[in-house]
Simulated assay, not measured.
Amino acid sequence: MEEKETKQQLYLVMGGRVTDPRELEFQDPESLHVAGVYGDYDRAVEAWRGNAQRTVDDAEMKYVIVHLHKLLDPEA
């Protein structure tokens, strides 16, 4: 039986203050909060949700999940 090799998937969770809550331009990119890099999407969503809920009352704070594996290997 042949095993299919799966490529590693990495997810970055980060957030910070944005210039416009409807956009994704950060006011001060150097001060972004990096919540972490995760090896599976479920853990990344959990980290994103925890940080987003902690800052829910601040409309200018936004957290995102970045699919690092898509940036590292765009043809995959």
Rank of each mutant, 00 (worst) to 15 (best):
M1D: 09
E2N: 14
E5F: 11
E5Y: 10
T6C: 08
T6G: 08
T6L: 05
T6D: 06
K7L: 06
K7M: 08
Q8M: 13
Q8I: 14
L12Y: 04
V13G: 01
M14E: 08
M14I: 01
G15L: 03
G15E: 01
G15M: 00
G15K: 04
G15Y: 01
G16R: 00
R17N: 11
R17V: 04
T19I: 12
D20S: 11
P21M: 02
P21N: 00
E23I: 07
E23Y: 12
F26S: 04
F26L: 03
P29C: 03
E30I: 00
E30D: 06
E30G: 09
H33K: 12
V34T: 14
V34M: 15
G39A: 09
D40G: 05
Y41C: 02
Y41I: 09
Y41N: 04
D42T: 11
V45F: 06
E46P: 04
E46M: 04
A47M: 00
W48L: 06
R49S: 09
G50W: 10
G50C: 12
G50D: 13
N51T: 05
R54W: 06
R54K: 14
T55H: 11
D57N: 06
D58Q: 07
A59R: 12
A59E: 15
K62G: 03
K62P: 03
Y63Q: 02
V64W: 03
V64F: 02
I65T: 02
V66A: 05
H69P: 00
H69I: 07
L71G: 13
L71M: 11
L72F: 10
L72Y: 12
D73P: 05
D73N: 10
D73W: 01
P74N: 09
